[in-house]
Every structure is written in C-alpha cells, then in structure tokens.
C-alpha cells in the first residue's frame, strides 16, 4: 500500500536549502565538499534501489526477450518481440486484461464514491465521529489475505438451498432476488471482485478527503455564505475544486493498487483461477503451473508498462507543480 507524493518543500529546492554554499562560488572543491557528505548519506539507498528496483527490472526485461528451446527441440519461446506478440495475442492474456479493466474501473469508482460520501457525512463533525471514522477505516488494518479468506466465503456463488455467505444473508433478509454468482460467472464478473477491495480501501479514501476538507479554512465557507451561496454551490464551486489534487492522488493510489492486485484475488478465487484471472495472478500461474518463466517475464514487463503509463505522468505533473510553487 502506498501513499502519495507529498507537499512541496516549504523552503524550496534552491536558496538556503540548496546545493552547496553560494558564498564560495568559484571554488568547486568547497562546493563538492559541501554536498558530497549528503550524497554519501543516500548512497546505501541508491545502491539498494539501483540493484533491487532498476537492476532487476532490467534483468526481467532481458529475460522477457529470451529464446527458449527444450532438450527435445520444442521451441517454448521464439525470442525477441515475438515473445510479446505471442502473449498479447493469447486469448487467455486478453481475458486477463479485460478482467483487470473491469476490476480497476469498478474498484476506482467504488472507493472514490464511498470515500467521498463518507467524508461528506463526517466533515462537518458528528457525534461519535471518532468511532464512525474508526469503524469505516478498520478494514485497512487487515491484510488482503486475511480479508480474502472471509470474502471467499461471503462471495460463494451457490444460490437457493445451498447458499452461503452473502447469498444466504440476502435470502434471510427476504432479498433473494439480489443473489448473484459474484465473481464466478459473467462477462463483468470482476466487478464483484472489486467489492472486497472497495470494502478495504474506501475508508482510506475517506480519510484523505476528510483531511482535505479540514484543511480548508472556515473563513472561506463563511465568505461564500455571506455572498449568499447555497450549500450546494458552496461545495460545487468553493470546496470541491480545492480537493482536486487529493482526488487525483486518490485516483493514482487506488488505480495502481488495482493493477498490482494479487493477494486478494489469489486468496478469494484460489491459485490459478481462470475466471478471476488478471495479469498479476496469471504471472504466478505462468511461473509455477505452466513452467514458462519467459512468458511470466513478458507479462510482468507489460504490467510494469501499464502502471508506468499511469504513474509517470503523475510523478512528472506533481513534480512540476511543486517546482511551480517557487
């Protein structure tokens, strides 16, 4: 789970907190002596991140282009970009991509909706606010694996006399018509897989929005009211626009979590379930069921690419706004 790129440096990257010491300009050695210890401080982390993140990514990409031939001469992977075209052309992979799309759209929309709704309910203060906040947020403290064990049972597809979990609950409440096969059937089955994920993360999004609301000074509301704005207009034109950076952060957090989602699906649908397969779980299957590490490397590289397409513009964007402040 991840948190977002943060606030701008209050003092800015240049000036007093900047590199070296302007008083000694011209004397490069002194400058170097000034910043070199800083570099040494970070060096262990640079080395670790360099190897474990970028080195391994590179290694994985190299592996994804490998040509593999078995002893008996069967070609397992043709090598080069053909590895990529054969995975992308595989209906199984396309099915996993489709599942990922459905999961991500539902998951993002659901968490944003409930997160914002709950924040709205709480933002003006409420009796027992602390209690409600804790209750709505508590699923965050539980691991996906632990949550998955419960949701596996809750989302059991059996209906009628065999029903368990949610379907059974619906029957008991006289809402038998709501019974569903959940993630086990249908073209949009992965929307059901998003339910437990929404359950876990809506509280987190609520906390983000709540902090955003609380960060807006009371004066602004008062000013708007004095101007005769209705509550609706107050939210629409004064408060919501100020929350958009938070909404963007939330979107990126939830979106990239969805693309990486593995634990929850693995523990709800079981290992190598086809119906609930997404690229992240397919990669496990390729490694340990299909004995095809090359295809797994191709899949992992593509997954990285998908996440990067979403995240890199965001990192650049926040980085730029941060610089723009100064």
């Amino acid at each position: 789970m991840t948190v977002l790129v943060g606030p701008a440096d209050a003092t800015g990257p240049t000036g007093r907190a900047g590199y070296g010491n302007e008083h000694n300009e011209g004397d490069d050695m002194v400058k170097v002596r000034r910043w070199f210890p800083s570099f040494l401080f970070v060096l262990p982390s640079i080395i670790l991140i360099g190897i474990f993140v970028y080195g391994f990514i590179g290694n994985n990409i190299i592996g994804s282009f490998a040509m593999v031939r078995t002893r008996s001469g069967r070609i397992k992977a043709p090598g080069g970009f053909q590895n990529y075209s054969s995975l992308i052309g595989d209906p199984r992979y396309q099915h996993a991509l489709w599942n990922l799309l459905v999961l991500t759209v539902t998951f993002v929309a659901g968490t944003m909706f409930f997160g914002l709704l709950w924040a709205l309910l709480l933002e003006r203060g409420a009796k027992f606010e602390g209690l409600f906040r804790s209750l709505l947020l508590f699923p965050m403290a539980i691991s996906f694996v632990a949550a998955g064990v419960v949701w596996r049972w809750l989302l059991s597809p059996a209906t009628g006399a065999q029903a368990v979990g949610l379907n059974q609950l619906f029957q008991m409440m006289g809402l038998g018509g709501l019974q569903s096969s959940w993630y086990s059937a249908g073209r949009f089955n992965m929307a059901a897989m998003a339910i437990p994920a929404i359950w876990q993360l809506s509280g987190y999004i609520m906390a983000l929005f709540l902090a955003g609301f609380r960060g807006i000074s009371e004066d602004q509301r008062e000013a708007a009211r004095v101007d005769g704005a209705t509550e609706f207009k107050l939210y629409r034109y004064v408060l919501f626009p100020q929350l958009s950076p938070i909404a963007l952060s939330a979107l990126i957090i939830v979106g990239h979590m969805s693309m990486k989602m593995f634990d929850l699906i693995y523990s709800i649908a079981g290992q190598s379930s086809y119906t609930a397969e997404v690229p992240a779980t397919l990669m496990w299957t390729q490694m340990f069921q299909l004995n095809d590490p090359t295809a797994a490397a191709v899949n992992a590289t593509l997954l990285l690419l998908i996440v990067a397409v979403a995240v890199i513009p965001y990192l650049i964007y926040t980085n730029r706004t941060e610089k723009g402040v100064h």
Binding site: V53, N60, M283, L315
Partner: peptide, 12 residues
C-alpha cells in the same frame, strides 16, 4: 517510482 512498481516486475 520504486514504490509504484508492480513487484511482479522484479520477482523473477
């Protein structure tokens, strides 16, 4: 960026 990567990409 290291915190956004899908760990599948470095797992092998």
């Amino acid at each position: 960026f290291g915190m956004f990567i899908p760990y599948q990409a470095i797992m092998i």
